[in-house]
Design a protein around this nucleic acid. Structure first.
Length: 152
DNA sequence: GCCAACGTTGGC
DNA sequence: GCCAACGTTGGC
């Protein structure tokens, strides 16, 4: 079983949106980075644990836990001609962007980026590394354990 | 608004 | 295939 951290801008889709979503599940649409896509397409399995992270907002940090709840399938937004995620080079026969469904496990207190930075055992987390911008990153088992403890 | 860091694009 | 220019991310 693997652990992941997935970033979302709360102005676009927040943990509260996930709480209110149908089946408390959302297709993780809009990823347009190959490495992040490959994680979803090649490595994620149903039941993998996910940290739901709020980025580009006044208080960035972990806002909840979730689970991978589907296999990878084509991101429908790549075919929406008028949408912001349209990709002219993608076709239904040869889709370029894949996603998984993410289901809420629990909304938690906000574990802020500042607090994460203060925890020694989290210092190797990918998200805390200088210049890291990847929207989906693997989390190590010990990091997951530490974070779950901090979330209470 | 600034800017560091990184990914992508496109000319050659 | 190289690499400069450009665009984006995302914290501050």
């Amino acid at each position: 079983m693997a652990y992941w951290l997935m970033k979302s801008e709360p102005a676009e889709f927040s943990i509260d949106d996930l709480v209110k979503a149908k089946n408390q599940t959302v297709p993780w649409f809009g990823v347009r980075n190959y490495l992040a896509r490959n994680f979803m397409r090649d490595q994620m399995k149903i039941g993998d644990d996910v940290l739901f992270y709020h980025s580009s907002c006044p208080e960035p940090g972990i806002a909840g836990r979730a689970l991978v709840s589907s296999p990878a399938y084509p991101d429908p937004t790549q075919f929406e001609k008028k949408g912001k995620y349209f990709d002219a080079k993608a076709t239904p026969e040869t889709p370029r962007w894949m996603l998984v469904d993410v289901k809420l496990a629990k909304k938690t207190r906000l574990l802020s980026l500042a607090e994460m930075r203060s925890i020694l055992s989290l210092e190797e987390m990918v998200i805390l590394q200088r210049g890291n911008r990847l929207s989906i990153t693997p989390v190590k088992a010990n990091e997951w354990k530490t974070i779950i403890k901090l979330l209470g």
